[in-house]
Design a protein around this nucleic acid. Structure first.
Length: 301
DNA sequence: CATTACCTGCAA
DNA sequence: TTGCAGGTAATG
């Protein structure tokens, strides 16, 4: 389930191996609509001969800048994969598109569930994308103050708002649950009631879990891999995500984790450490254990 | 605001 | 056989 750290991991991988390469051919495979209805002929006409100038990320989108005014706008959604492989290699699993490059490698896009897209867009059109996305949570503009101001004027459940890409762009289900746990905030907490002190914890937690995810090259829960087919190492660093289903215990207080549905998504909380109402500190003092949690934090990105 | 559609593999 | 997984757009 690619979220910001996974998409960033893919971006870094693509940057290392595709910049300066020229597209020689586009080959459509299983899913004809992977480019949003663009035909194979049109895709080849417009893309062949174009050089890849850079690979950017905005929220969970990848933007491959080309040397005309074009860009490839890629979203992996749930199960999309991008791999760099030798051109002679047979199609990857669920391959929908092969972008043949001039150095004997292909950029291959596959997606079991066909939610993901590789769109050819005018680069100028990206401002519209940008305008409907909120803060980059690792960007300079995303401060605790900004987060606090945003949360207090929103009404709704904290988790829903953190998942809203128009507010903060790049968080998904995994990292929201992790950030809320680290900040000791309940996902159902009305966002407008969050205090500045709590917001500072949340802000810090968001940045820590995302940076840790990137440093570990993403969370491989089932199928995520980087463009070279390597799995992410972050799954073992998760504190709560995925443990609620299996009856796991809170890594901070040892009580059983709880599973609920928030905004239609499976959610794991510690009912003790993430009290639903109020600003009371969790019953067991988190300080000592909390230090060891923080010690997992990787070098800043 | 919440729910459904989009898809498919896999666990229950 | 059912339903869950979840990012986003569309719909109620």
């Amino acid at each position: 389930m690619p979220e910001l750290p996974e998409v960033e991991t893919v971006r870094i991988g693509l940057e290392q191996s595709t910049i300066g390469r020229v597209i020689t051919e586009i080959v459509f495979q299983q899913f004809a609509d992977v480019m949003g209805g663009l035909s194979s002929t049109s895709a080849n006409d417009r893309l062949s001969g174009q050089m890849i100038l850079g690979v950017r990320r905005r929220a969970k989108y990848l933007i491959v800048d080309l040397d005309s005014d074009d860009a490839l706008l890629i979203h992996l959604r749930m199960t999309g994969r991008l791999l760099v492989v030798p051109s002679a290699q047979p199609p990857i699993r669920f391959e929908h598109l092969a972008i043949v490059l001039d150095n004997g490698t292909d950029l291959r896009f596959g997606d079991q569930r066909k939610f993901g897209r590789v769109l050819l867009v005018d680069r100028g059109a990206l401002v519209h994308l940008d305008s409907r996305l909120g803060f980059e949570p690792l960007g300079r503009g995303f401060t605790a103050t900004v987060l606090h101001n945003g949360l207090r004027r929103r009404h709704g459940k904290l988790k829903n708002i953190l998942l809203d890409q128009r507010f903060v762009a790049g968080l998904g289900n995994i990292y929201v649950d992790e950030a809320l746990f680290r900040a000791r905030l309940h996902p159902l907490r009305p966002a407008s009631t969050i205090t500045l002190e709590e917001t500072r914890r949340l802000h810090r937690a968001i940045r820590i879990v995302l940076r840790q995810g990137i440093a570990n090259q993403g969370t491989t829960f089932s199928s995520f891999e980087n463009p070279y087919g390597e799995q992410g190492r972050n799954a073992s660093r998760l504190q709560v995500y995925g443990k609620g289903r299996t009856g796991g215990d809170c890594p901070r207080c040892g009580n059983p984790l709880e599973r609920l549905v928030v905004g239609g998504r499976g959610t794991t909380v510690c009912p003790t450490c993430q009290p639903r109402h109020g600003d009371h500190p969790p019953t067991p003092s988190p300080e000592i254990v909390g230090e060891s949690l923080n010690s997992q934090r990787p070098a800043s990105v």
